[in-house]
Each structure stands twice: as structure tokens, then as C-alpha cells.
Write a protein that binds this DNA or RNA. Structure first.
Lengths: 263, 263
DNA sequence: AAGTGGTCTAGACCACGAC
DNA sequence: TCGTGGTCTAGACCACTTA
């Protein structure tokens, strides 16, 4: 058994000064163990359907306590990547491809598209500052007439347009120039970088709707055909709404799939 | 501080012989602490938006270790009931009422309806044994012609029909007479009681569809109006598919609101 | 009977935020 | 600075499955 603890313990954050991101944290031991194990699962070092080493073996290999190993395995199990059987062992879920597309949440569209086997690309349709709509003043808890920044983006799966997403946030939250921002960024990371806000949770409203007019055209659907309509609101640590979004999701091409675990 | 540990420690399972459920387990300490804290949150003993006692205070009050308290609080946080702020404290999420399910958790339609503020009731439309369809032989990994049991149920919210759910499982899995089964049972519990199988996880596909014919009539929707179409497959500890289901969800009346947390 | 994962403890130290 | 939650440890014992 090789003890790799020295390489694990409180890895120094690299690029701290270069990236000028004061919130860069060094990776915790469990994060590193998580990435290692996740990597071995995804690249079939641990073969699908096969058994992982026991908790004690893993804790010895990595030189960490069994409790640390357990927190990592618990997370992987909650994502459906592994199955844990008391009295038996821990197994790699052989349905890994169905499951992997949806770890880390539903709303990371790039990841969702790519792990569904498509090439993902994004087209920024518009970035505009305008007065908030009535609906937006309500969900964002701002005043009528307050200025908001609206990002309208179109996601492609192998050059098929699949998701039309609009995100709206109050202009006054932006503390860093957005001229050069990366359109592929997840909203969560966008907020961290340009607004210095950390998102704690989101509430989504999933609905069925009918494609019509402009939206139908953009997503290449017949008017009147069904589309998923997902409204989302993100909240920060003070439970204040930061961003609201609306996405039309062409589920004819891209499946919206959820893995549910419990216990 | 009152130490209630004696009442918590390994509570004896009641009704063991009466219910004839051999798999009845005594509740673990953390399950009991979970129910206590969840109860205090839901009945506003801990007021919405207010702060909970600190971890050390809670561990003293219940006479359990801080680690135990932390596993419980982590679960409540993952469901969006509480917000945890490092360096500050733990707060009751004042937006609990807006949510009826969480990403990664099981969707219990009865609880979903009730937590949306409606009275839930269930009508069993049909229970029949028949040959499996082609689709079913595929998802359940059985042979063409194998017999399946199909349960068709209609869920009401305040006497409005909102969900039409069909669940299908291979007949040969049933090891106990189903004559007297309780139609309100969640499929998970049904399987535990009548098939002696424990479900480990489920994969759901959420799609938008159009109401048509019989379904439109049952759910009181105009033909051609949008409906959510949720397909689900349940897997047991051996990763074998046990049940597949299909639900039409009238999201005009009952919203599907999901909370998603990061940590 | 042996080995696995599941639960729980007591205690140490770190990171962060409010004061 | 102090108290909060966040991370990690070492070790005990329980519950379950398999051989």
C-alpha cells in the first residue's frame, strides 16, 4: 500500500495571485479523495459493476481516516455512481452512463449536453441592460424600474439548438467589468466572479408548455409541439434572490433525467 | 439543558409482531434527532428566518455527539429546510413553503400534494395482470410474454385530479398476497412489503407532452394542452430493474417545484 | 466466523464572519 | 477576538451478508 497522504494534505492553492480570485480555497483532503475516486470510476480503473476496495483499504491507501473516506463514498453514492451494500461491499454502478450526465445538478447545461454524448456549444443571442419587468421585480425583490442585466443564450447539442436560456440579475450587483466574460460559464460561477456572491440554493419550477412563435423557430420545433419550461431562482447566503432564469428545453433531443437516491 | 438521550438511544421497534413486518428496524439516534428537529422547523418552534441553536448547544440538549448533530443538519440543509453559514449560524429557510420536492430525493406524490397545501387522495383505477409490452420487457429486463402486474392510480389535490400514475412490475416478484394492499402506499413501501425488495435508487425522465384522448379526460384538461410526462425506473440493491412507472402530471394545478442545494 | 458497511463518540484544529 | 460551522482523526461497537 502506498501512502499518498503527503500529496493530499492541504494542497496549496495555485494561481492565487495570477487569477486575482481572493476566494480561491485550497482543496480539502476529501475533495481530493473525491476527485481521485471519481476519476477511477469514470475511467473504468474500477470496472463498472465491479467492487471497490473496502473502506479500510481505501483509508490505508490514501492515508486518511475511514470517516473521511466515508463522506466521499456517501457523496458518490448520493449521485448514483456507486452502490453500497451493507455486509457486502461497494460497487460501481454499471448504469454509469445514464447516471453520470446528471451529477452535480440539473442546471449545468454544458455538462448535461456533453455527457449525453453531444458536442456542446453556446451562442450568446443578446446581453442587454433594461428596466425590470413586473415579474422580475417580484422574484428578484427589487423596485419597479430598477435596471437589470439580461443574458440570452442558446445551447447547441451537435449543432442542434436544444436549450434557450435567459438569465436576469439586477445591474447593481455587478462589481466587475463583464466585457470579457466567458459565455460558457455556469451562472453560479458567473455570480462568484462578477458579483462576488456565493449561491446557496436554487428553486426551480418545471412545467410543460407549447412551443410558439419565435421560440419554436429558434429551437426548430413545430409551433404547438411540447417543450419543457424551467423557471429558476438562485438565492445567496442571506436568502436574497440574486438571479432568475427561464429556459425552454427541447426534450425531444436532450433528455432531462434525474437520479434519485435515498436512505 | 435537559438530556434526552435516554429516550433516544436505540428506541425499541414497536408493533413488530402486530404489523408482521420482519424488516422493521429500530430507529437510529440520528433518525430520531432528524424527526425532532424537522418537527420543530415545520411547526415554527424554530421560527422561519430565525437562528437555530448552535451545534454544540444541540448536541448538549440531546445528549449526542456533535458529529451526529452534524449529519442531521447536513440532511436538512440538503433538503433546503435550513441554511448554514460558516462563522455565523444555522437559519430556518423562510422559503420552505414554496418547495415540494428536492433534486436527488424521491418524489412522494402524496407528500408533494400535501406540502403544496392541498388535501391528497388516491383512487385506484385498475389492478391487472397482463403480458408485458415491448417497452416493459426492455426496461424491466424480462422476456416477451412474461406476466406483469400493472397498477393504475389517480391522485387528487382537493378533489382535482392531478396525477395519473401507472406502475408496472413483473408478477413473479410478488411474494405476498396483494388482495388487501393499501393504495396509498408509495411504490417503495409496496415493494418492501409485497416483494421483499429494497429499492436503492431510481432514474426519472421528465418530458413535456400533450394531453390526448382518455388521459385528457381523466385529468380534466383540453386535448392538446401541455402535460408533464414522467417516466421512472426503480432499481434494487443488485442493480436490477424492479418497477417502471409512467405519470402524467397536471402542472396547471400542481406545480413541480424543486430545491437544489450546493455544498 | 469473518469481513463489510452503518452508527456514534470525543476531541482536535481550521476557516470564516460578526462584533 | 470570539463563537460559529467545516474538516479530520482514531477508535468503538452494531447490523448485515457471504462463505
Amino acid at each position: 500500500m502506498k501512502c499518498v497522504r503527503n500529496t493530499l494534505k492541504y494542497q496549496t492553492a495555485i494561481d492565487y495571485s495570477i487569477l486575482k480570485m481572493p476566494i480561491t480555497r485550497s482543496k480539502s483532503i476529501s475533495e481530493q479523495v473525491n476527485e481521485l475516486l471519481r476519476g477511477r470510476i469514470l475511467d473504468s480503473t474500477y470496472v463498472p459493476g465491479g467492487r471497490l476496495p473496502s473502506e479500510s483499504e481505501l483509508s490505508q491507501e490514501f492515508g486518511v481516516s475511514r470517516a473521511t473516506i466515508r463522506t466521499v463514498l456517501a457523496k458518490l453514492a448520493s449521485e448514483g455512481l456507486i452502490l453500497r451494500k451493507q455486509g457486502d461491499g461497494t460497487y460501481v454502478n454499471e448504469r454509469i452512463d445514464e447516471v453520470n450526465a446528471h451529477v452535480g445538478g440539473l442546471w449545468d447545461f454544458v455538462r448535461l449536453i456533453e455527457s449525453s454524448g453531444y458536442q456542446a456549444s453556446i451562442e450568446s443571442l443578446s446581453i442587454e441592460k433594461r428596466a425590470a419587468t413586473e415579474q422580475e421585480t417580484f422574484t428578484l425583490a427589487i423596485q419597479p424600474g430598477d435596471e437589470v442585466l439580461a443574458l440570452k443564450r442558446l445551447f447547441f447539442a451537435n449543432s442542434n439548438p436544444v436549450i434557450l436560456a435567459t438569465n436576469v440579475l439586477p445591474s447593481n450587483l455587478i462589481v466587475k467589468d463583464t466585457e470579457t466574460f466567458d459565455g460558457r460559464l455556469h451562472i453560479r460561477d458567473f455570480l462568484q466572479q462578477y458579483c462576488r456572491r456565493r449561491i446557496m440554493y436554487a428553486i426551480s419550477d418545471v412545467r410543460a408548455s407549447l412551443a410558439k412563435g419565435e421560440v419554436a423557430g429558434i429551437l426548430h420545433r413545430e409551433p404547438g409541439s411540447p417543450l419543457l419550461d424551467i423557471r429558476i431562482a438562485f438565492y445567496d447566503r442571506d436568502n436574497a434572490p440574486i438571479v432568475c432564469g427561464q429556459s425552454y428545453y427541447n426534450d425531444e433531443v436532450l433528455r432531462l433525467r434525474l437520479v434519485q437516491t435515498w436512505g
